[in-house]
């Protein structure tokens, strides 16, 4: 039963992932659609960041938010992405332990 659930979950996850490989192989998109697809990564990043970041510590949404603000500042200063990530982790760690 457990394996059936896992295989079912795998199929409904894999099919939406690989079907587009066949679509772009067969169909040429109009210009507006290419632009739309080029904008998708930026839109996806926005939707993935907010409001999810508020749930880093679900009972204290400001902690995730502050971690995010530190990440924005560090990234804006041009720091390497690993340092941005470590800076945000350190901020949340300090806020939750203090």
């Amino acid at each position: 039963m457990m394996l059936l659930i896992i295989v079912g979950m795998a199929l409904v996850t894999m099919i939406p992932r690989f079907v587009p490989a066949y679509i772009v192989d067969k169909v040429n998109f109009p210009n507006w659609m290419n632009k739309w697809l080029q904008a998708i990564p930026y839109a996806a990043l926005g939707a993935l960041i907010f409001p999810g970041i508020l749930t880093v510590k679900p009972d204290q949404p400001h902690i995730g938010l502050l971690g995010g603000i530190v990440a924005i500042l560090l990234a804006f200063l041009g720091l390497n992405i690993i340092l941005v990530v470590i800076g945000a982790i350190a901020t949340v760690f300090l806020l939750t332990t203090l």
Binding site: G67, G68, A71, I72, V85, A88, I89, T91
Partner: peptide
Amino acid sequence: TLSQSMGVALYAMFIGLLVP
């Protein structure tokens, strides 16, 4: 406390990708 703090890591990565 550390693993909870690391929960912000992927959000920070998304921010680190978007800001530049």
